[in-house]
Design a binder for these strands. Structure first.
Lengths: 170, 170
DNA sequence: AGTTTAAGTCAGTCTTGTTGACATTCCAAC
DNA sequence: GTTGGAATGTCAACAAGACTGACTTAAACT
């Protein structure tokens, strides 16, 4: 399959960055970095009765206000039953509002309340602070590379979702 | 704090890549990419009675054969009770061997058995294949940037662990 | 001898994922 | 216009995997 040794293409460009050792380092970097990525919001949430799932729901409701449950399901990639439990507690606690659809009464459109926005802000600020520090340390070219590799690592379906969100925000 | 508008340093370099919108895209890229990152091994493991926790244990035992339980605990960042459950099933199923330490008989040194190596290989191959495709698509400079940003995103303690592993392997 | 350290265990809780069953609503074919 | 299927969302029960806390055993250190 792959012996991990250095190799060279016909064109002569060096593919040393594709050795098994380089890939393994990439895998481990992903693992450790993701821990850092979630650490700050996790700390904030652990004080409440909330977890990472609540953070994700809040993030994407903020990102796409009025989104339906089904839409959120596709973004988050979990079952509707799993999302529903999270959503229920958020609605009960007055962080999220669920409005019955006008044209299709089966649908529920989701919005953050004032309290929901407040928590979203706290979580975002914490996560952005770390991302900002990392981006600043690494510099713009590294950031561009970072994004390019991450996009190439997504499943095509997720990549489409990501692009759609990106275009809606910018 | 941060109004998200473009800004410029004294030196005159453009810091447009540090806007809140850019950071949010980075956050979402991390989220979707991590899903892709774990998708292939998860699929393999779901057929067996194993999960992501088993994969992590197997990965790092393979990476640092003979590591002690305590050492693995520090790398994985979980409690010993949590790790122990995973380790016990792996040992029962004959994928991991636990040898009593020679100099310090309290320690248990962990090794993959032949079957353990076989599973590790399957999981690694799947994960590396995706990482390789992403790296190849993105190119060497993007990969360098990817690694730089990820390293900057780690907690300092994790970063040390990551560096130690990196040096031991290369 | 007494303390600390490494590993493992038992019991209980929490978050978050799963499946299965069910209610409501919409829509299209009859 | 009624009926049957598809879509949307909810409730209930269960499993994986994380956590805390209390405890045991064995070995090492002082």
């Amino acid at each position: 399959m792959d012996d991990g040794r250095a190799t060279t293409t016909r064109g002569g460009e060096n593919l040393l960055f594709l050795t098994d050792e380089q890939l393994r380092q990439g895998i481990e970097a992903m693992f450790f970095a993701y821990r850092g990525f979630t650490a700050d919001p996790d700390r904030i949430l652990s004080d409440m009765a909330y977890g990472r799932a609540h953070h994700r729901a809040i993030h994407f409701i903020n990102r796409a206000p009025g989104t339906t449950v089904n839409n959120l399901l596709n973004i988050l990639g979990v079952t509707k039953q799993s999302l529903n439990r999270v959503l229920r507690t958020l609605i009960e606690d007055g962080l999220v509002e669920s409005r019955i659809g006008k044209s299709d009464k089966r649908e529920r459109h989701l919005f953050l309340t004032e309290d929901g926005h407040a928590l979203e802000g706290r979580l975002s600020d914490a996560q952005r602070a770390r991302m900002r520090a990392a981006f600043r340390d690494a510099g713009p070219e590294a950031v561009a590379g970072f994004r390019t590799v991450l996009e190439a690592m997504m499943d095509t379906e997720m990549h489409r979702t990501y692009q759609r969100l990106k275009e809606s925000g910018a």
